[in-house]
Write a protein that binds this DNA or RNA. Structure first.
Length: 425
RNA sequence: GGUGAGAUGGCUGAGUGGUCGAAAGCACCGGUCUUGAAAACCGGCAUGGGUUUGUAGCCCAUCUAGAGUUCAAAUCUCUAUCUCACCGCCA
């Protein structure tokens, strides 16, 4: 959510910033509604003020034992006028709120301009893709051959397309990857391990920006009067921990990590990445979240991104890091780095982590604040990133560590998590 | 699932229709005192919004949330949510 003061004072500048990310702001409509709002709100508050003072005088007159009938008659018509004004105002505010809630965050000045992913800027590259002296297989063929380690047919039978059953050492490898990441971030990077609900309420989804605009990307439950949604990422519960809170400055920064299942409807991507583990309805992910003071957030983004990259470096998987352009960053983000891992079967780098600084955009929606040294409350900044997506890491390991006979070498750092075995198959 | 009790400012907690945005205590901030600190004393201290050149003033809203009664609601009514206790069921 953008600052409503900014929208009032500098609407044209906001529109110009948003245009950079391909979002057209209807300034004429907003201005018209805003004028109406100003007039109506002032009038409503004026009526309320009148009612308050008269009610007060009735109380005082009664206390003095005077006849209050004339006063009652006078205040009578006020009520009807006030009710009408309040109703009109509520309708108008709801209309404005619907528009403002759907406006994305402003891109930071360090974000490259561009309208599509072609304009993203690579900022660094690590590792060298391995040369294979045999025909590489993709992760589906590799894992299927290993005792149906990845079983998409069973996934389809149990649930449907975009679901998978993992079996044996592949299932264990998936668990090992998650454990390894979690241990790294808690033991080396100073994040606190968290375990959070996978079903959350609508307030939480609004807070991080999934609602109202992106409801169709989520799975929803509806049990009587309880409406929950499955989390698309642990960013939602972790970040919402500070919703409606005032944090003491000394407690900042807050750094949290969680390994969780994530659920996505993939409504807009039918036909994309149909094969394999890349785009599933359900997958594991280790999430990194930081809650920081405003002046620290861009440095924190660099640090958080580094933590995610470290996972790939320890796994010895080549990657590149990309500064997303204005047209490619997400709704709530002011700046985003994507980390892409090398996949030999596709001969390309594929996204495995997305690290974003949300600025105060989520904090304003959540009313997440901190108390400054001067005893004032100020909005926090929130950041999050995958550290990493477990399923996609599994894909990268299978494909990068495959050997000529179809077996998979176990990455050095994962051996303790795999009971000491050195290869699968 | 059943029964009962609750939900008030950063925390504890008073307040059952009329200057209540809310007593008091704690915490916090400033000051006096002190070589310094503590104690004591004095003062300050909620949030969101509107208006405005204004972090001035004025105004509005907020005592879990929503709806209602009333000229007037923290206070009365209804609904929801959450918390606690006991019972039942259960991984």
């Amino acid at each position: 959510m953008l600052d409503s003061k900014l929208l009032r004072s500098d609407l044209d500048e906001v529109a110009a910033q948003l245009a950079k990310r391909g979002f057209t702001l209807d300034t004429a409509t907003i201005n018209a509604l805003e004028d109406e709002r100003k007039e109506l709100q002032v009038r409503t508050q004026e009526l309320q003020s009148q009612r308050n003072t008269r009610s007060k005088s009735i109380g005082q007159a009664k206390a003095r034992g005077e006849d209050i009938q004339p006063l009652l008659a006078e205040v009578g018509q006020l009520g009807a006028k006030l009710d009408l004004a309040k109703e009109e105002l509520a309708t108008l505010l709801a209309k404005i709120d619907a528009i403002v809630s759907a406006i994305p965050n402003l891109p930071h000045e360090s974000v490259p301009h561009g309208l599509s992913e072609d304009d993203n800027v690579e900022v660094r590259r690590w590792g060298t893709p391995k040369e294979f002296d045999f025909d590489v297989k993709d992760h589906v063929d590799l894992a299927t051959a290993l005792g149906k380690g990845l079983d998409f047919e069973s996934g389809a039978k149990l649930s449907g397309t975009r679901f998978v059953v993992m079996r044996g050492q592949i299932a264990r490898l998936n668990r090992a990857v998650g454990q390894f990441m979690l241990d790294l971030h808690t033991e080396q990077h100073g994040y606190q391990e968290m375990n959070v609900p996978l079903l959350v309420n609508h307030d939480s989804l609004f807070g991080t920006g999934q609602l109202p605009k992106f409801g169709e990307d989520l799975f929803h439950t509806d049990l009587g009067n309880k409406k929950f949604s499955l989390i698309p990422t642990a960013e939602v519960p972790l970040t919402n921990l500070v919703r409606d809170e005032i944090i003491e400055e000394a407690e900042l920064p807050i750094k949290m990590t969680a390994l969780s299942c994530c659920f996505r409807s993939e409504a807009g991507s039918s036909g994309r990445d149909i094969r394999g583990l890349i785009r599933q309805h359900q997958f594991d992910k280790v999430e990194l979240v930081q809650i920081v003071k405003p002046e620290d957030s861009f440095a924190a983004l660099e640090g958080l991104t580094k933590c995610a990259e470290k996972v790939l470096e320890l796994l010895e998987l080549p990657y590149r890091t990309v500064n997303l352009c204005t047209g490619d960053i997400g709704f709530s983000a002011t700046k985003t780095f994507d980390i892409e891992v090398w996949l030999p079967a596709q001969g390309t780098y594929r996204e495995i982590s997305s690290c974003s600084n949300m600025g105060d955009f989520q904090a304003r929606r959540m009313q997440a604040r901190y108390r400054t040294g001067e005893n004032k409350t100020e909005l926090l900044h929130t950041l999050n990133g995958s550290g990493l997506a477990v399923g996609r890491t599994l894909v990268a390991i299978l494909e990068n560590y495959q050997q000529a006979d179809g077996s998979i070498a176990v990455p050095e750092v994962l051996k303790p998590y795999m009971g000491g075995i050195t290869q699968i198959g």
